[in-house]
Amino acid sequence: MTDTQTLNPSDLTDAGPAGLTVEDLTIRYGGNVAVSGFSLAGPLGWVTGLIGPNGAGKTTTFNACSGLLRPSAGRVSLFGADVTNLAPPARARLGLGRTFQRMELFDSLTVAQNVRLGREAALAGCNPLRQLISTAADRRAIAAAVAEAIELCGIGDMAGLRAGSLSTGQRRLVELARALAGDFRFLLLDEPSSGLDKAETAVFGSILRRVVEERGSGILLVEHDMDLVMRVCDYIYVLDFGQPIFDGTPVEVRRSPVVRAAYLGSEAADV
């Protein structure tokens, strides 16, 4: 544990109800330590940023949060409940959604079907009967959620197109809409703006703020676009070589010499 870490997850409880909390997370691949002793609190109602150079362990942390990786040590809790030993679908059903750095869309389905699966997948869950058929109440909830998510992301005009035929920027929006259609109270977004142009990124940022403010969801955002991070995040954690090196508000992060040395470089001063 480095002494630059100033805040414990428990200190943040006044920020909002507990969303995603990671305590002392350590992940080893064979002999390599990818993440070491990392703690993080992502409260509801906040966009929490996670930044750091390539290979810092951001996506590894994400995978541990969503259950794709089993941590070597440490605890992951969701809304106050320990989920460290739950499989990815179970965590999703508790309300944890995510996107992927390399987008995982259903390419042969239409945009509308992609977004619909965002809701339908959790409703189907693990019960064979529920996977076979949906109830009328399900269908109403799905229709409403799909319409809202499509409207929020402004992808109504491409609803009938195949996801595989879209451009990268459009695909990012579809993946976000799919995550928003789900009944997720906490979202993990892995470099959602990579491949987007400036205008698209601006739209993206405002959608994220709306989600947090209007729905009270929590977001954990991994991002390389510092403009976007500084603009939308309430609180930021910085990782380097698997070690937490700093955390604080955007202003504090920008001023921190530690962060500047490790990641931001001199350009941070201009941001």
Binding site: L68, P89, R93, G97, S108, L117, L123, A124, C126, R130
Partner: peptide, 21 residues
Amino acid sequence: RLGLLLRGLADSPLALSTMGT
């Protein structure tokens, strides 16, 4: 619903699973 899940499964089991199925 199963049909949609199956088609999703063919494209990305990973996405389907992290969305709750």
